[in-house]
Amino acid sequence: MSTSSNPSPAPEATTPGVIGVFDSGVGGLTVLRALQTQMPGTALHYVADTAHAPYGPRSADYITERSLRLAAYLQDQGASLLVVACNTATAHAIAALRQRWPDLPIVGTEPGIKPAVAASLARVNGSAGRGRIGVLATVATIASARYQDLVSRHAEGIEVFSQPCPGLVDLIERGQLDTPELHALLERLCQPLRDARVDTVLMGCTHYPLVQGPLQQALGPAVQLLNIETAVAQRAAALWSEQAKPLPTAHSLRLETTGDAAQFQRFVQQVLGWSSAQAAGIQV
């Protein structure tokens, strides 16, 4: 497998009407589920880069290189709109993706600082909040300039407590969605947010909604827990409707992974309940 950091531009799409979606692993399936809900009947092609997951501990250059490769592959397979269903890849690579393919509609997945601030302020006005939000995210997302810019632009007058979550994506990728090890890790990660007395917590990684129940339990019932998958799907739907030419849609879902296809398929079938889903292994 080539490791060049400058993949060649993808050929012209030969099969119109496909939305390409990628993530470091299974987390982006939460975005995929929202896309199916928002855009029923639209052909979706999802790639889980499981062989290179998690992205959180990786360098910015590595994350960008993988993102460029996956985007080129999806376009080669017919995608005419791209959804980066990964907060970490969005934080480090979306600028490079848009520079490489300026005419390709690309939707990123970013921590929703602005809606989290609005939700917290609404609770303050209703006497249920303190104007303090927590953000659970990967180490790489929190360290990125894009994340810091979001906080500086949208969190004026609000205290933001950024909580890195090393190890959480690993457990979710291994299917540990309700185990003692998961609960113990969530307790450790949420303790600083409980100590800070936050009223609203944002899940800043698409993996985390897969353990939303245990997360809410660890935070306590008084804390409002937010995700952003619906907003991402709505943005993708808006861009899709703006395509210059109407593109045909079809009831199809293509699932691929750079890792173990059987394991990925079991995860999709068991966790999402998509019993008929099939997955294939690829090298990108």
Rank of each mutant, 00 (worst) to 15 (best):
N227H: 13
R188F: 06
V211R: 04
V211C: 03
E181N: 11
T179Q: 06
A184V: 01
L215S: 01
H183L: 08
N227T: 14
N227K: 09
V198R: 14
A218V: 00
L210V: 07
T200M: 09
L202K: 13
C190Y: 01
L215Q: 02
A218I: 00
P209T: 08
P192W: 04
P214K: 00
Q191H: 15
C190N: 09
A222L: 11
A231N: 11
R194M: 14
V201N: 00
P180G: 07
T200K: 01
Q216C: 06
L185I: 04
L219T: 13
P192Y: 04
R188Y: 02
A222Q: 13
C205D: 02
E229T: 10
T206A: 07
P209Y: 05
R235G: 12
P180H: 09
E181R: 15
I228R: 14
L225H: 00
Q216K: 08
N227L: 07
L189Q: 08
L186P: 14
L185Y: 06
L219V: 13
T200S: 08
L225N: 00
V223W: 02
L226M: 12
L226S: 08
V232K: 04
Q212T: 02
N227D: 15
L219N: 15
P180Y: 06
P180T: 04
T179D: 06
P221N: 10
N227Y: 03
I228M: 05
R188V: 11
D195G: 11
M203Y: 03
E181H: 14
L225S: 00
R194H: 10
E181S: 15
Q191Y: 13
L226V: 05
L185G: 01
V211W: 01
Q212M: 08
G213M: 05
E229K: 02
A218Q: 01
A222Y: 10
V201K: 05
L210S: 10
H183R: 15
V232C: 11
V232F: 12
Q212P: 05
V211Q: 03
T200C: 07
T200E: 06
